[in-house]
């Protein structure tokens, strides 16, 4: 199947600082691609290059068959973009914003009305047509922004943290919309800091300091990063337990998750070693249980490994 997005060795420098440092990936048509990474990893910069907003410093990328450096206008005809910062007109009403962007995408007047009506009921904006964008709550603004990006049924959709500030029910709606688009053949590239959402993506790519540090389907990533077992520990002194676990060579990784601890056990070592280590340090253990790793575990592990590499 053809790639909707094809990125090779893409770089972006701001002065001496490399915000995006030679990334390559490809996104097959009709899939949902998640771009994850810590704050400042370079996700928004990547999206902005792919949308033709920023000129890449080097490297190449094709979006919907158009080279982003040579034919940025071609790219713009087939994409939708929702930026991280709300960037619609606050002094226009909901319906005026929708009509305006529909017009810019060249929708015929009759289609504008039907599309706008459909989008509004889809995103739950119905009944708020006449509200000024400035008067909407943050979550409703996100819905409007998503609506404006969808209006023209783009072949490739870039969503930069679309669900930030959106309530759980509406997030579910957002993802329903995203899946429906993917089913109809559109490609979606999305960034998010909600890792439960990232589980819905066909492929996730993890960025750190401008580079890709991990890529694959969520299941694949979990298997690769946690070949041994993952144990969740509940105890009376998590701080002491963390120190104890980190000091033991048989534990690959230990991290705090709220009041609990997640410990990754090296392949080959038994599940009971956790209890042994804690008992030897005199930490009272209330529960230790083998669990499946989540993307959050993967994320934290990968990021901390890359940080270690950065500062040897």
């Amino acid at each position: 199947m053809a790639s909707a997005i094809e990125v090779r060795d893409l770089c972006k420098s701001f002065g001496a600082f490399r915000a995006v440092d030679g990334i390559s990936f490809s996104v097959p048509q009709g899939t949902v691609f998640g771009l994850l990474g810590a704050n400042g990893a370079g996700k928004s910069t990547t999206i902005r290059m792919l949308c033709g907003l920023l000129a890449p410093s080097s490297g190449m990328a094709r979006v919907a068959g158009c080279d982003i450096a040579k034919d940025p206008e071609g790219v713009k005809r087939s994409i939708g973009y929702m930026s991280q910062k709300f960037s619609l007109y606050e002094d226009l009403t909901v319906i005026e914003n929708l009509r305006f962007f529909a017009g810019l995408y060249g929708l015929a007047p009759r289609r504008i009305e039907t599309e706008a009506g459909e989008i509004m009921s889809l995103t739950g904006l119905a009944g708020r047509e006449a509200s000024l964008a400035a008067e909407l709550s943050a979550g409703y603004r996100q819905r409007l922004a998503l609506g404006c990006a969808l209006l023209h049924s783009p072949r490739v959709l870039f969503l930069d943290e679309p669900t930030a500030g959106v309530d759980p029910a509406a997030r579910r709606v957002f993802w329903d919309i995203i899946y429906r688009l993917a089913d109809s053949g559109s490609t979606v590239l999305i960034t998010t800091h909600y890792l439960d959402e990232a589980e819905y993506c066909g492929t996730v790519t993890l960025m750190h300091a401008g580079r890709i540090v991990a890529a694959g389907s969520p299941g694949q990533l979990k298997r690769e990063r946690f070949p041994g077992r993952l144990v969740e520990v509940e105890c009376d002194n998590p701080e002491a337990a963390l120190a104890a676990l980190k000091a033991d060579p048989r534990i690959e990784e230990a991290a705090l998750f709220g009041t609990r601890l997640h410990a990754a056990i090296a392949p080959g070592a038994g599940e009971l070693i956790v209890e042994g280590i804690l008992a030897s340090r005199g930490v009272g253990l209330s529960r230790a249980e083998s669990i499946l790793p989540s993307l959050e575990d993967v994320f934290i592990r990968v990021i901390s490994e890359s940080e270690k590499e950065d500062r040897p």
Partner: peptide
Amino acid sequence: IGTLEQLIVTP
């Protein structure tokens, strides 16, 4: 305000 960004990505 940032709206120029949204304008630029349109055709």
